[in-house]
Write a protein that binds this DNA or RNA. Sequence first.
DNA 1: ATTAAAAACTAATAAGTGTTAGTTTTACAA
DNA 2: TTGTAAAACTAACACTTATTAGTTTTTAAT
Lengths: 196, 196
Amino acid sequence: MAKIKPGKNATKKDVITHKASALFKIKGYSSTSMRELAEAVGVEAPSLYNHIGSKSELLQAICFKVANDFTTYLDTTENMTVSTVTKIENIIRFHIQMMLNNFDEVFVANHEWKHLRDPYLSNFLNQRRSYEKKLVALIEAGIKSKELKSNNPYVSVLTILSAVRGLEFWQRHKQNVSTRVLEDDMVNHLLKGIIK
Amino acid sequence: MAKIKPGKNATKKDVITHKASALFKIKGYSSTSMRELAEAVGVEAPSLYNHIGSKSELLQAICFKVANDFTTYLDTTENMTVSTVTKIENIIRFHIQMMLNNFDEVFVANHEWKHLRDPYLSNFLNQRRSYEKKLVALIEAGIKSKELKSNNPYVSVLTILSAVRGLEFWQRHKQNVSTRVLEDDMVNHLLKGIIK
DNA sequence: ATTAAAAACTAATAAGTGTTAGTTTTACAA
DNA sequence: TTGTAAAACTAACACTTATTAGTTTTTAAT
């Protein structure tokens, strides 16, 4: 049978991981068997182990790739010299674009992390907690500088992160709205509300 | 060994379903074994089958209970003679309260429905699609009556439903915010935004 | 064409899955 | 106390799981 064919700049491990993202998203981590993954890759299950260490290693790779992308962007944004509202807007837009461009991976990181095992589970949760804290601090800064209403900042972060994550629904109804409208209207809704 | 002890007004099937909700939430449907569920109930696995038909029947019961609760409330609210904004606010509050009072079941319905099999899977998705359509119609009515900004109504529904669903994060950080503040601030954020 | 490494293959293992069959125990009404 | 139905039990099933061992095929450089 044919070997796994990676495209340019992609190892075979990358190909497997990419297929795994798609399957984990559709069926969930636990319900995806290595035999199914192998079939999607075009290979027998044991052959996968020439390239990867284990099933759980795949989940780890996906989850931490996503987590690191978000952390990196946030850290970069924090150090920019723009208004707090602009920083928040940029972060919201980055989240939206990650959902649109790396949907499978982000979905898996959002939903399947619970199947990580320690120490990876703890690491992942710590990283996310730290991310949320930085966002809360950003909102607090916006309140202090009178750019934002003094809502509870934690609730604001919760509302924003959740709304953005909800784009996973949208992936099922793509036809209704263009990505441009989606991004702008969601940013507007989250920053300015819907009431006239 | 002791028999399953249902409380008042609860059949043994109810007890099993309730424990199943908790386990499905924590571990996911696929990763929860009937032996684990049995242990949580205090019984050997085969004994469960004196009360239930199958594992998937449990998932069906949980998902459709939740779906029906939401549908019923929405239908009731639609027929009330109050402003559109008030209807929307009521619905948001109902979602928040469902998340707070029936967290396990709502979480499972939100995350584990994909493991339903047809015809239940189709039924569930149809019911949810229909729910979303009614909400979109409500937002459109609010725009027509000039109560709401003319954002894309589908994006608004998406944003609201997602934000509310995001309360599942909050369940992990309960200590930070009171339920009263949470509910009011989230409603405010979603209706009026955060910018001053 | 030869060789060495990479990566595929088949076969197998031990553990875990939901569920059924058949039996024993429990609970409760007569 | 006895009889009956409900609900527990043990044992077992057919299947699926991730993974390993061992072998053969493919790839690519010499």
